[in-house]
Simulated assay, not measured.
Amino acid sequence: MTAPIPGADGQSAQPPAAQHYTVAALPPPPEGYIAPGMPGTPVPDAPTRRRAAPRHRPTTAILTALLATLLGGLAYGFAPLRAADTLGWLAIALAGLIALPLGRLGGPSRALPPLGALLAATALLLGQLTQHLRQVHADGPGPAGLLHDTLATWHADLRPLDLAFYAIALIGGHLLTHRTAARP
């Protein structure tokens, strides 16, 4: 394709003259009309990507929380025996370990936060019993038997601070389950 050369086809090299058109007056806008972009104009909602609603599986949540209770209690119980006095504060970690799958998988159910509290206290109890079982096994069981000696040493070793740890596990299990279930 070639560009035309001015003057080659009989046209002059001067720019074309401006042409004038007349425009009819616009009709007045209807009453209450606000032009787009003016103050007071409603802004359309931005298109958002809709996420699929999470499927809540309470049975899977409870089974996972039971497994977390067992594993958390055993991990608590198999900690070094010399650190047994400082482990009570890990009750909140046990509560979080149980509450996370229970709340996330189970969803906002009224039955799950109390279950999370009971499972957190159960994990703490299982951990303490495992510690005492290890201690009795290391010392050698008495004539009454391993289980009886374990429960007797656990009962004799209970302190008021242990009750505080159970309270921390109960409250933490309930609150953390409730908060993880309510989170989007």
Rank of each mutant, 00 (worst) to 15 (best):
A35W: 05
A35I: 02
G37P: 04
P42I: 09
D45I: 00
D45C: 00
T48W: 02
R49A: 11
A52Y: 00
R55M: 03
R55Q: 13
R57P: 00
P58S: 03
T59P: 00
I62Q: 05
L66Y: 04
A68P: 06
A68H: 07
T69P: 04
L70E: 07
L70G: 09
G72N: 05
G72A: 15
G73R: 11
L74C: 04
L74G: 03
A75F: 13
Y76W: 11
Y76I: 03
G77N: 08
P80L: 14
L81Q: 13
A84W: 11
D85K: 09
T86M: 10
L87S: 08
G88V: 07
G88F: 05
A91D: 03
I92T: 09
A93Q: 02
L94K: 08
A95H: 01
I98P: 06
L102K: 05
G103P: 06
R104Q: 12
L105T: 13
G106C: 06
G106R: 06
G106N: 06
G107P: 07
P108Q: 12
P108Y: 00
P108G: 07
S109E: 11
S109W: 08
A111G: 09
L112G: 07
L115T: 11
G116F: 01
A117S: 15
L119K: 08
A123L: 04
G127V: 00
Q128H: 09
Q128P: 00
L129I: 10
T130Q: 10
Q131C: 04
Q131M: 14
H132G: 02
L133T: 09
R134M: 12
R134I: 08
Q135E: 13
H137S: 14
H137Y: 13
A138G: 11
G140I: 13
P143D: 13
A144R: 14
G145R: 13
D149E: 14
D149A: 10
L151Y: 12
L151M: 14
L158D: 00
L158E: 06
R159Y: 00
R159C: 00
P160D: 11
D162C: 01
L163R: 04
A164K: 01
Y166C: 01
A167I: 01
L170R: 05
G173A: 10
G173M: 13
T177L: 04
